[in-house]
Amino acid sequence: MNTTVPSNNSPMIQLKGVRKSYGLYEVLKGIDAEVARGEVVVICGPSGSGKSTLIRTVNRLEEIGSGSIVCDGNNIHQPMPARELNLLRSRIGFVFQSFNLFPHLSAIDNIAISPIRVKGVPREAAYAKATQLLERVGLADKAHAYPGQLSGGQQQRVAIARALAMEPPVMLFDEPTSALDPEMVGEVLAVMKGLAADGMTMMCVTHEMGFARDVADRVWFIDQGQIIESAPPDEFFSRPQTTRAQRFLSDLRH
């Protein structure tokens, strides 16, 4: 594999001139940005601005038109055999808005199946690890519940545990709380805060500005396919530079 040994001060994620179009419509218009190791970046912006598309290009759920994305020293979008891409993907945790748990598997099977089938982890070790992860997200008692028996918040916490089971050095969150009832948002954010506190590198598309304020190291504000602001949260929230961001923030308050 074309792997450069990542040193500790090289960025975890590096986006260079990332462009993507759907037909004639350009969703991403040249994104240049970096996420440092251990950094938590919150991506916000109006709907249709390209934030979900952007985060989905990082593990190549979406292809890009031009530019490059390097994650943990690996050039994600260069041509490579499918096997290699699968391996890279397994090293990037991804949490979906709609959870996408496997409904035919119990919570613990959801978590254990990928380490077993993708990484070849022995069953006992995989289930031991899955039990640990369920404890970590506060669902040890739900190990044998099926997704259909869990609340949205519980499902999303299992989904986070499922992504963590592959031991990725970086986690991507695509609006993890948008599909949840308001009273369940807190429990998911609490798990994410815990992850951030443990030093996980995180990229998170969210509308939870409280989370951004408390946890993020930086906020990227995206509008019309470009990052037009990138600043620490206190700076972004108190002194947004662009009129677009000012309007976005004032709209959020109302």
Binding site: L61, N86, S90, F94, F96, N100, S114, R117, R162, A163
Partner: peptide
């Protein structure tokens, strides 16, 4: 998508 994102 969920399965592919996990590396399957």
């Amino acid at each position: 998508e969920a399965a592919r994102a996990l590396g399957h």
